[in-house]
Each structure stands twice: as C-alpha cells, then as structure tokens.
Amino acid sequence: MHPQLQKLVALQDIEAMISEAKEQSSELEGMGFNLDGLASLQEKADSLAGEIEKRHLGYYRRLHKRFGHAVVPVVDNLCTGCFANIPASFVSATNENLLQNCESCGRILYWP
C-alpha cells in the first residue's frame, strides 16, 4: 500500500474516533468508558497529519469537508462513496503503490 495512503487511512480512523467520542460521549460514558484521552488523541491526529504531504492532506481535507469520508473502501469493484465502477486496471499490481482516486467522485480509494 502507498505509505501516504496508509497514513491517510489511520488519520481518517482517528478523526472518526474523535468525532464519535464527542458526539456520543454521554452514551459511551454511560457504558463506563473514560474519554479523558481526547486531547492526547487529537495531538496524535495532528502529529500524523504532519507526516502527510501537503498536497495529499489538502486534497483529503477538501474531500472530507465535501463528503464526510475522504477515503473509501472499494468493495466488489465499486467505489463505496458513489458506487461507480472501478476499472480493473486500477487494481493491477503495477498500481499497487499509487494513490488512486475514483474517476467519478474523486474520493481516495482503499482496498481493504
């Protein structure tokens, strides 16, 4: 996997975790979970964002603002963001180390 994509996936996972912890704090705390580490998790996200090339991070931020999820998994050759078909050539070994976008919606593609 492209190393920048690996960082983008980790960043999206952490940012989703932070949002969930904020939005569902009462429900999670009601189950007994302590969310005291929110600030340190945000620091971790910031540090990870600092390791991503500016052009990739900027594109990720724009997609995130527009769609909510900037990186989306490809399932059954479909972009799960817009459900457009992803050409078979995208999944060839030659492209394994490329950062690829859906030709239809522009979201960053990830093969889980």
């Binding site: 980790a10 302590n34 969310l35 929110l38 998790l41």
Partner: peptide
C-alpha cells in the same frame, strides 16, 4: 493502529 489509538482515548477495560 486503530485499537491502540482507542486505548489512548481511555482504557476499554471498564467491566
């Protein structure tokens, strides 16, 4: 990495 990040938010050993 995701599970380690979750533990950084707060331990999940709550029961």
């Amino acid at each position: 990495q995701m599970l380690e990040s979750r533990e950084a938010l707060g331990s999940t050993a709550v029961g």
